[in-house]
Write a protein that binds this DNA or RNA. Structure first.
Lengths: 183, 183
DNA sequence: GAGGCCATGTAACATGTTACATGATTGT
DNA sequence: ACAATCATGTAACATGTTACATGGCCTC
């Protein structure tokens, strides 16, 4: 349940409405913690009920502006230093790799090539994002760059792995790889 | 819904019961596609109902042994070459990084150090796994090694990033980093 | 006054986790 | 006969996604 902490964190920067927060999730946090509109509005109500945020202003169109409370800030700080709990790591790609011997080498290579392209494309988008961030200068920006660097390294790693893996497929078909139907 | 394809893939190797498959998920697929007991039994019934697997033997203790059908194999092969659909990338760690200026540098460094240790420890476990795989020789093993290599590279990358990120924190506090409370 | 954006909420559905429940068989 | 393991299933709960529904405000 980090979603609520994402909301709290954004609200520390400045008070905001659900609508504002939704836009922030779609920009700043899109690569880190995506969330949908229905999740946000629901969570905000729960946060208010729990006293972690308060409605500090009401604007036109039923707009409710939320602000973090003392308790909310405390909760956020506690979460920040809490030990990490391992998230389940599911990878459809690796599952496919696992069953590659049911496909032809050509098909398997196509899957890896697709991933390589996706990783490269995503890397490119992150590079653009980094360029955009260079002109900006806010408190979230410095940390954003550190998070972004993770993405850059990850996509790099993925691209390189995909190339390497494709190379493995053709290699020594008599020993390293055997059709499962022949096993 | 790759879970069903994981089941199909395992059943291609050999017919198995839900119980057998559960053990396979806890070993072979633990790092790739974890699943719980209730998920497996439910999915197997649905697969049988859809005609993708069939019950080809019944043993003691109500044991039902499943085998992939023609249709199941076709479904699996189609999935294998289907274009990847991007999975949502949520990272609690990066979310914390995003809000690091709410913590002291010391606290932030502790979070990164913890991640570095986790990555290193996981890397070690994967290395052990690789050693174990060296003695084995099956059709799933060759592919397993390719998937494993992904894990090794990923944990390496994570370890290095965590070190780098910790270095960023102390650096040039007047320009690169500013307390949010001072912003 | 019409279209677009601001703004919030609910409903339906799919997925995932944990715990509970039951019972057969095997080995000692 | 007792414990461990094999074996399957259901229930309760939490989470997440998509679509639906409503209406106010602003600008042209």
């Amino acid at each position: 349940m980090s979603r609520r902490h994402a909301l709290l964190g954004l609200l520390v920067d400045r008070p905001a409405s659900g609508y504002d927060l939704l836009k922030l999730f779609d920009t700043s946090l899109a690569h880190v913690w995506p969330a949908t509109q229905s999740q946000l509005y629901g969570e905000l109500n729960r946060l208010a009920e729990a006293g972690l945020v308060g409605v500090t202003a009401e604007g036109p169109r039923r707009r409710k502006e939320y602000t973090v409370t003392e308790r909310g800030l405390r909760e956020l700080r506690e979460w920040l230093v809490a030990p990490a709990q391992r998230q389940p790591r599911r990878s459809e790609l690796l599952l496919k790799v696992f069953f590659f011997d049911l496909a032809t080498d050509e098909q398997a290579r196509a899957v890896l090539a697709e991933r390589e392209e996706l990783a490269t494309a995503y890397h490119g988008r992150l590079m653009e994002l980094r360029t955009e961030l260079e002109s900006e200068d806010g408190p979230l920006t410095a940390n954003g760059r550190i998070a972004l660097e993770y993405g850059l390294r990850r996509t790099d790693m993925e691209r390189e792995w995909a190339r390497w893996a494709a190379g493995q497929l053709g290699e020594a078909p008599s020993t390293a790889r055997r059709r499962r139907s022949a096993g």
